[in-house]
Simulated assay, not measured.
Amino acid sequence: MTINIALVTSGAVVFGCDSISSETDYFLRPLDYVVKDEGGNFVFDEDGRVTAKFSLDRLQNVVTNSFGGVTKMFSISHGGVEAAAVTSGLATIGGKTISALADEYCAQDPAAETLAQVAEDFLAFMRRKYGEVIPLEYQYVPEIEFLIGGYESASPFSGLYRIRVRENTCVPVYVKGNTGVGWSGQSDGVERLIFGIDGQLRSQIMLAVNETLDKFQRESNENFARILRELMAAADLNEIPEGVNTDLVAKPAFVLATGSFQLDIDYANLPLQDAVDFVSYLVNLQSGRAKFARGVATVGGRTHIGVVTRSNRLRMLSEPELVHRNVGFGNDQ
């Protein structure tokens, strides 16, 4: 997993990401699905083996390993388009890192003229690379997602697009002067800060409320039917008199309002330093949740920040240079 942030202001696009990469695999608790007899004992065949039956949606995607120092942010500028991307999902394709494939894309001709064209061309390029290794129609192919943002020479505005390789979608997030923040990857902490609630919590609340409403409606209908039967029996009636409305009240639709607790941030007019600090804060917030939670941390490591402006390609901030410290045990310094 990862956390990717892209903030679009009126003067820049600021990217942020963590630097941990995770390895995952599909797991299942087999004993829950092994065929048993009426006495609850496992059923063995003549070779002493058992049979497990389960639906594929019971498979769980579990993190098996994670490591840091991964590059998830890179330039994909072409021609007059200053563009950069951050990636989440699959870290390599055919033994090549996503950043290495991005370098291959940038070396291509011809140059794109709009940010939308860069996003669409990059999506097509990555699908070709992915399809050379894994059939994209396969159901359990892991997704690769990118947030792509920047400027184009013919437009005064910045923009941000979201592409998903397996899904084959390129969706504009902020274009034509719209500003705001977008994210991808593991983002529950960021969502709670910005919206006051994250998607998983929202689903759980709606499920609990709707189950309660269903139970209330069912019990109310049963109670109404009982009262009606008793009234008819007391009045010695065999049928309901004409003109009596016995329509029951329909279950009310429950929709948890979104945006009610959203932070009011003037994204368009954020000074560049504030924009950098804000993106860094969001990445560190998600990294902190992963660090202190039980299990393998799937977000964390060094926080990387990059800035794209109209006049500059992706500029990485405060990135350390490679160093060689292990000089051996000799005294010839």
Rank of each mutant, 00 (worst) to 15 (best):
K53V: 15
E46G: 04
V296I: 15
V255F: 09
A116H: 01
D198A: 11
F122P: 03
V173A: 03
L285V: 12
V133W: 06
L285G: 11
T246A: 10
I197M: 08
D277C: 12
S155M: 07
V81E: 06
E143C: 14
A154I: 11
G48P: 06
G79K: 07
F15G: 05
W183N: 04
F125M: 06
L263H: 00
I93P: 06
R162H: 13
S55R: 13
A124T: 13
G330S: 15
P320A: 00
L263E: 05
A257R: 07
E137H: 15
G149K: 01
V50M: 13
D236W: 02
G16C: 10
P172L: 00
Q204M: 10
F27R: 15
V244N: 15
E211G: 00
R325S: 06
R325E: 01
D236L: 11
D45C: 07
E211P: 02
D25Q: 15
S220D: 12
G301E: 06
L193K: 07
A225W: 02
Q286A: 13
G330D: 09
F74C: 06
V118W: 03
Q117W: 01
N238C: 04
S260F: 00
F15W: 07
E152D: 01
T97I: 03
F216K: 06
N331P: 02
V13P: 07
N245R: 14
I98H: 04
E219K: 06
G95C: 07
I144Q: 07
P142R: 12
N331A: 14
E104L: 09
A124W: 02
E219N: 12
S153P: 03
G259W: 02
L314Q: 01
T179Y: 01
V181C: 07
R294C: 01
F27K: 14
S158K: 03
I98S: 04
L147V: 05
F67E: 05
G79E: 13
R302H: 04
A83P: 02
N331E: 15
F42Y: 14
L115V: 02
N326M: 02
A116Y: 01
A275N: 08
V175P: 00
F74S: 05
F74P: 02
G328E: 07
D214G: 05
L201N: 09
N326T: 02
T92P: 03
R128L: 09
L56G: 02
E239N: 09
I98E: 01
I148A: 03
I148N: 02
G68Q: 13
R226C: 06
T51L: 10
S77G: 03
N178E: 11
L248F: 08
L285Y: 11
I240P: 12
M73L: 14
A275P: 09
M206A: 15
S287M: 06
K291W: 02
I194N: 01
G159N: 00
T246H: 12
T64S: 15
